[in-house]
């Protein structure tokens, strides 16, 4: 009898729970995210600072939410659950492709000419070269995230261009590490012999002493291409006020705190536009990452 009392009770409660509006609607909070291209702790530290800076500069409550994948960042932007994103070249192109009216408003100074480094484990015996290192064929190879520009799109493009074949036909094994920090760790540990990594992350980790040059080194650097940028949704103008977009752009361009900039790491932020990323879109279409 007691047990049945709980059943009747429990069922009633479960039904009432269904109708509960468990989400608090943060209607007026300006929310942004960033692709998880590095260790989460570092990202959180960096972007929480950015949120404080934007809240102060814009006069609008601004919040950073971390996501677990590049796709999740794009999806959150598409679904208007974030209005601003720090995207890579490819994820930015995807985001703007999916959200008509959205716009690239600022990029890092270095993002005009970004590079991917091909790195190898010392056991391969490969030496740095100016030409594409054809000797990486037959080795094991790891990209970064599946949706990364510097860790996937551009390296895959150069692999295809030089070998005239898909990566899984060139290398004995192809993996996706998930992010650039992991790519470095995996090649350094020998789990993969070759990897493709964002040059900024490489330099940052080198400076931080996280890389053992005896174990892992750069063999080739890609030609420069445009990469990271801040992309904002078009409808922020109606949701906040007209001119909000320009205000956000201004705030980003005026980010001068050296510590904050160093955490990206970028020298400064400069204006950007959608057309700057045409080359990325073309490459993405070429290797069928966007249809």
């Amino acid at each position: 009898m007691n047990r049945l009392k709980h059943l009747v009770f429990g069922a009633a409660l479960a039904f009432s729970a269904m109708g509960l509006p468990a989400q608090q609607v943060l209607a007026e909070t300006f929310v942004f995210t960033a692709i998880p291209d590095e260790n989460e702790a570092r990202l959180r530290e960096r972007f929480d600072k950015v949120a404080v800076y934007l809240t102060k500069t814009l006069g609008v409550e601004t919040k950073y939410i971390p996501v677990k994948s590049y796709a999740a960042a794009v999806t959150a932007f598409r679904n208007n659950q974030v209005q601003l994103g720090w995207f890579g070249g490819l994820s930015g192109v995807r985001a703007r492709h999916l959200v008509p009216g959205s716009e690239a408003i600022a990029q890092g100074f270095e993002d005009q000419a970004f590079e991917t480094y091909f790195i190898v484990h010392a056991s391969t015996g490969l030496k740095p070269s100016a030409d594409f290192p054809a000797a990486i064929a037959g080795k094991t190879f790891t990209f970064g995230s599946k949706g990364s520009t510097s860790g996937r799109l551009m390296p895959e493009y150069y692999v295809r261009q030089n070998f005239k074949a898909a990566p899984n036909r060139i290398f004995t094994k192809v993996g996706f590490s998930g992010n650039h920090s992991k790519t470095i760790a995996l090649v350094q540990s020998g789990a993969y012999q070759v990897g493709a990594v964002n040059f900024k992350v490489w330099e940052n980790e080198l400076k931080a002493g996280k890389i053992d040059p005896k174990k892992v080194s750069v063999v080739w650097k890609t030609p420069p291409y445009p990469d990271y940028q801040w992309t904002i949704r078009g409808d922020v103008e109606t949701r906040w006020k007209a001119g909000f977009k320009a205000k956000v752009r201004e705030a980003l361009l005026n980010m001068k705190d050296p510590d904050l900039l160093a955490s990206f790491p970028r020298k400064s932020f400069i204006p950007a536009s959608n057309s700057d990323y045409k080359p990325i879109l073309d490459v993405a279409k070429l290797i069928d990452l966007i249809s």
Partner: peptide, 21 residues
């Protein structure tokens, strides 16, 4: 068993916030 009702009643409020649907 006696606490399940209470748990189920309270749990929806502990799921944390999120964006609007």
């Amino acid at each position: 068993p006696k606490l399940i009702g209470l748990y189920v009643l309270v749990a929806p409020f502990l799921l944390g916030g999120g964006a609007a649907i």
